[in-house]
Simulated scan of single mutants.
Amino acid sequence: MTTPQPESQVPTPQQGVQPGALRASDADRDQVANVLSTAYAEGRLTREEHDERLSQVMAARTFEELIPLTQDLVFTGAPAPAVGQQQDNRIDTSGADPTPDRMVAVFGGTTRKGRWRVRRRIEAYALFGGQDLDMREAVFESPVTEISGFWCFGGMEVKVPEGVEVQDQTMGIFGGTDISKVGDPAPGAPVLIIKGVALFGGVSVKGGAKRTNR
């Protein structure tokens, strides 16, 4: 007959690792990064605060290090409905790919259009070539999308839907950036940040009529 295990030897949660000391996974860090991106898009964090906290997220190894980074951003109870602060239906963070979307155009071109998924980070390189990104029917995987690129004797053309906020942080050397017909940012809409260097090249961002997502 099997001897019952003494109750004192049965493991309990108190005998295990404390929740805050658990190791954080890449998925955990991505979830916290999405919270920070949403807070930045809604104006609850400045760009400096967002960048500083995001650096801490990437360096975090345990839940204990992640928790303070969102304590003042996450509601623990049922939040009151806020007019104009609903998340845009073009943003879908479920199944987001954390790796950058790399686009390389050398004596050629890269095109994205239709119902495609815009990753949180895009790395664009064009040498005697260009990129054409039509985001008017796209689904954004993050409230804040960052395009970093280098355009030499080439460029990039981006079409964005109504309400998207565009921030230009590029450096132009015998080149530059042209942003037109974008309109006023809408609360909760995606934020597009463009940074990099345009050397004898350029970046063009144009607003367009909002299409119906199918």
Rank of each mutant, 00 (worst) to 15 (best):
172 G>M: 05
163 G>W: 06
52 E>V: 01
141 E>H: 01
41 A>D: 11
95 G>R: 10
169 Q>T: 06
193 I>Q: 11
51 D>E: 07
32 V>A: 04
95 G>H: 09
169 Q>L: 13
77 G>F: 00
200 F>I: 06
4 P>H: 07
3 T>M: 10
161 P>A: 13
208 G>T: 02
27 A>V: 04
48 E>A: 03
125 Y>K: 11
137 E>I: 07
19 P>K: 00
89 N>G: 10
183 G>W: 02
101 D>C: 09
128 F>V: 06
11 P>D: 00
30 D>H: 11
118 V>F: 04
147 I>V: 15
192 L>P: 00
26 D>C: 02
144 V>P: 03
80 A>M: 11
170 T>S: 13
58 M>R: 06
4 P>E: 05
57 V>N: 02
173 I>A: 13
118 V>I: 04
181 K>M: 04
174 F>L: 15
47 R>H: 05
42 E>W: 10
169 Q>E: 15
90 R>A: 14
98 P>W: 04
24 A>T: 02
199 L>E: 02
39 A>V: 03
21 A>N: 09
79 P>D: 10
164 V>D: 00
43 G>A: 12
18 Q>C: 08
213 N>G: 09
58 M>G: 01
159 K>T: 14
14 Q>Y: 07
80 A>I: 11
122 I>A: 12
204 S>G: 14
13 P>A: 14
98 P>Y: 00
3 T>P: 04
80 A>Q: 14
37 S>Q: 14
100 P>L: 06
108 G>I: 00
169 Q>N: 15
100 P>Q: 11
173 I>L: 15
203 V>T: 15
97 D>G: 02
108 G>N: 02
59 A>V: 00
156 M>H: 04
111 T>Q: 15
167 Q>A: 10
191 V>W: 10
119 R>H: 08
49 E>D: 12
58 M>F: 07
193 I>E: 10
10 V>N: 01
209 A>C: 05
180 S>M: 05
146 E>S: 09
85 Q>V: 06
168 D>A: 03
68 P>F: 07
12 T>S: 12
112 R>H: 15
92 D>Q: 12
106 V>F: 01
16 G>P: 06
6 P>D: 09
193 I>C: 09
127 L>E: 08
201 G>D: 02
66 L>G: 05
196 G>H: 10
117 R>F: 00
74 V>N: 13
40 Y>P: 03
87 Q>K: 14
20 G>I: 01
117 R>V: 04
88 D>Y: 07
135 M>D: 03
